[in-house]
Design a protein around this nucleic acid. Structure first.
Lengths: 241, 241, 241, 241
DNA sequence: AATGAATGAGCTTTCATTCAT
DNA sequence: AATGAATGAAAGCTCATTCAT
């Protein structure tokens, strides 16, 4: 049903739009935004140049559409993984892994595109709030924010935590480190290890009572245990309605 | 005498080079790299286009020279501030403040240019080690690394700290957060507060005595019990639905 | 109907292409290849510069197209004149006249363009066979070759004639001499006289019954005597000086 | 003595001039006239750009100087080889061989340069007589002309021969054929065979009495014999003064 | 005599976008 | 809706030549 719907709604128009986006995405990834002409995109998508501009009034609009879709999927996958587990720490690990996976699968394309977009949009730094990219990013990082807030509500994260700083550290750290990670052959274990190395310090600093370093140690395992117990409880609740 | 002569003329050359770099820097900041033509740069620098290419064989080379100089100054100022105080935590705060100041003074130009450069240099992700930008960055982040290492030697930072992860969090967090910070009117106090909010969590996780990931599962029997509980829950989930 | 439409529009395209070729041809003739900018060509052809590169992806491609067309016409006219008469000698005269006429009508442009093309195409001397110009020339000179071969078959030309040498002499001689001929006021009679002067010696050497190099030393005893005489002379020279 | 003279006269000025000419010659050969910048030439010659223009006021002047020197040497070597033997036919063979050798040694550079020069000098075809290249060429071809004239005076070549046509055939044929010869691996035997193939037809058509093809045969060996006998006689005369 | 910094017009080519069909 | 020919401004870069030192 859903499938039929999707197929049905996938009209020729939508198919073409998707073709163009796909073609543009991989060309941008290979040659960069400025290095890819609309002519090449049209050719790769199997449409004429005129048609391309029927679908996207501007090369920038096309870029924006790509970013939109990317963030859409990224946000959706982030929501999915945070629903899979209940523990805050585990959620963060999954979020980080998902973030890296998405970026790496696209050959870091998105980071480049985002930066290019920022460079293209000259008003960006002057009017960040009105930038479409801000909207995308806001939607996405809300998933992270919700995880943190839920952790606070359940009492596992100290309530005086400065959320925005932790968010900056989380995503900033991941993306900064990705530069190093890219270009190497990496396997799942390495990615997992890297993710842990990034998340662990943040996790430690979020704990209740970590104001003094010494206090943290005793409480930490207990917290984890409690969270996992709670997660089991919730799953049981759902299973026996 | 001859040497003096040479020095004199070298000064003129250097002046011109500086003029070009200055003109290009502010134009890039205003209009972006791709939005600034070499013609405009030459005009702004008060030289002919030919002369511009006399000094920088390529527009890219000019970009690189700008980045080089920026990193040079950034690194120098970082060294200076870390020499001003002895405490590791204070050093980190100063480093962060210096980093933000440098980036903000340039209207975040440098971050944008770096990204543009990486986008231009397609070999980047394939061969990051040979990228000039890597060399610049390496020189700069060594200042941070040294601060951390000295903290370890003095016993203020636990010796098993994963340096690279902390480095990624530090610089990545600062730069990621700067997007938000930019475009607002900010005063020194706000910047200081932001810096603290970024550095503090990292500092906490660096302290001696903070448990490592391995310690977390110290309570082995409890852990085992939990796992069994979770297994039971899963069986229930499958059985009931 | 649709076909008609297509033909109509194709005609317009072809017209534009022809306009560009014509404009380029006469500009090249007046100012030389390197002395003519694509801007001037576009203006002379009444199209924009962008359009010019729509039709010919490169200035070199345009040059090649001109040469192609020139050789096409040259070859066609050569075939026509050789069909007009039957006698081999007359055919050669007509071919030569046609060759000169075509070159002179174009103010020797073509010779210049060919040379320029060869100079531009650096691979020429290394891989003449793959040079487009070789293909053009081959098609053209085959007309000459066929005339000679037919003359052999009919018995008017001795069958051991080295065709390629005669071909080189024929076309090389004509083109070399054209330098002198050009720039003078010449009338048809003068051209005819010149053509005869070039063709006649070749014609004589082609005749059946003309001795080959081998025959020359038929008088063996005389030859031997001569050699002994020369040897004596050499000994004398050495002894006396 | 002569060597000392040469060294003595080879002042620094002359040396530099020679350096520039040498550098330009090989660069032109590799990259073509238009493909070689004066900057590259200066660098290859080990002088500054300014100095280059001290010696040659113009890039064209430099080209002309190269051609001048080339023709100078070519003419000198042509005179030398025609002095080595007395027989007209042998002289022509040597002249042809010398011509090919000189052109081939220079990777056909000279042909290209001459053509380029003709293309550069727009007035060429309108005012061939005033073209410097005409002067060079005239000096050179006079060697050929003298050989022919001497042959006529001695009665071995028919006096009604159209000298200019034969000259065109000789040089034109050689140069036209050289295109084919170049780019192959060629050895001395092949060159010699080619030269014979070019000269032989011309030689046949020059003979006294060749008005009718049949007549030629009988007389030809005799002519050769006579020429060689005469050559021996002259050498003897010289040897016993 | 020698230098090499400086010039600026000029080059070929690309590009996103429009519009008549 | 789809085409693709047409645009023309602009781009980065090169070049032969000059001239103050």
């Amino acid at each position: 049903m859903q499938k039929a719907d999707k197929n049905k709604s996938r009209t020729r128009l939508e198919q073409r739009e998707a073709d163009i986006i796909d073609a543009a995405t991989s060309l941008f990834a290979e040659e960069g935004f400025h290095g890819t002409s609309t002519r090449k995109i049209a050719a790769a998508a199997g449409v004429s140049e005129g048609t391309l501009f029927h679908y996207f009034s501007t090369k920038n609009a096309l870029l924006l559409a790509i970013l939109d879709e990317f963030y859409e999927q990224l946000t959706a996958s982030a929501r999915t993984v945070t629903d899979e587990v209940m523990g805050t720490r585990e959620r963060l690990l999954l979020l980080a892994k998902n973030h890296l996976r998405a970026l790496m699968e696209n050959q870091a394309l998105m980071m480049r595109l985002i930066q290019v977009y920022l460079a293209v949009d000259r008003n960006y730094y002057k009017d960040y709030r009105n930038s479409p990219i801000h909207e995308f990013n806001y939607r996405y990082t809300r998933v992270f924010d919700n995880v943190i807030r839920e952790g606070m509500e359940r009492g596992y994260i100290r309530p005086d935590l400065e959320l925005s700083a932790i968010r900056d550290l989380f995503f900033g750290g991941l993306e900064y480190g990705m530069r190093t990670l890219m270009g190497r052959k990496y396997n799942n274990n390495q990615v997992a290890a890297y993710v842990e190395a990034i998340v662990e310090p943040l996790w430690q600093s979020m704990q209740v009572g970590t104001g003094t370093a010494g206090d943290m140690v005793a409480d930490k395992p207990l917290h984890d245990t409690l969270e996992r117990l709670e997660a089991v409880a919730m799953r049981l609740e759902k299973a026996v309605p």
